[in-house]
Amino acid sequence: MIPAPFDHITPVTLDEAIRALTSHGEEAKLLAGGHSLLPLMKLRLASPKLLIDLSKIPGLAGIRQEGDKMTVGALTTHYQIESSELLKEKCPLLPQTARVIGDVQVRNRGTIGGSLAHADPAADLAAAMLALGAELRVRGAQGERWLKAEEFFLDLMTTALSPSEILTEIRVPVLSGRCGTAYLKLPQKASGFALVGVAVWLRADGGLCADIGVGVTGLGAKPFRAVRVERHLRRKRLEPALIETASAEVTLRIEPLGDIHASAEFRAHLARLYTYRAIVEAARTAGISLTKAKGK
């Protein structure tokens, strides 16, 4: 319940924060909403000597449209994403995903940047990031770079961020045309984390799936983009049998996690099932009539 002692600073510029991060190295941790870090510190699974609180740095939170992209600041809370009318219109997958994270109090406080940087293998937003092909803006002592969501998650709780880098914002496409989205998850009953969660967006062109993105969380050591599933369906006429075959590929070359809540085998099954169901749901919201396709 009680964290080990640490110092706490509140830089007012990103550069100041990066300097602190650079000079303290592994002993320092960034504090955003604190909903990934503080629970670990209370159990003393993490005991940083310094917390660099990002909350006083202006401009890190907020949602805006820039041309055909939506930009979400790293300190934007899950609730802000969930309730953003702009996102509901331009990129509904994000609010759909954000609204099933944890509980109200967690969503009020937890941030998208904190969640992504923490890289919990069962975090919800990661699936949406991967499905959408999000780009992550990162600032460090060496300057700025952009990472693709697929490059960002490396392993269990491990990202491509270097120890002195800060994730500052996330860019996702505006979903234009006849798009459908869905995020389906089976929550672990106690924690609310995803046993398996699948995020899907697709663009319809008549009965065709013009383009599709599928992101999966909870299954393996890191969330991943189901490229094989996407490839199987892109430019195809969607039918239940085809979606089923495609969904079966979601587990290829993935080593599923197993624990007291679900074995690896069951997680793999759930991933296939939820991939199927999420694609069907996304197709439905895109206005593709699957029953018709099935009938032929």
């Binding site: 319940m1 706490h8 504090l31 604190g34 909903h35 503080l38 629970p39 209370k42 917390l51 609180d53 909350s55 609730y79 109200v104 109090q105 967690v106 009020n108 406080r109």
Partner: peptide, 13 residues
């Protein structure tokens, strides 16, 4: 104005 779990917020925050 936002409900929070005060066990997961530092007093300094």
């Amino acid at each position: 104005g936002a409900a929070v779990k005060s066990c997961t917020v530092l007093a300094v925050q």
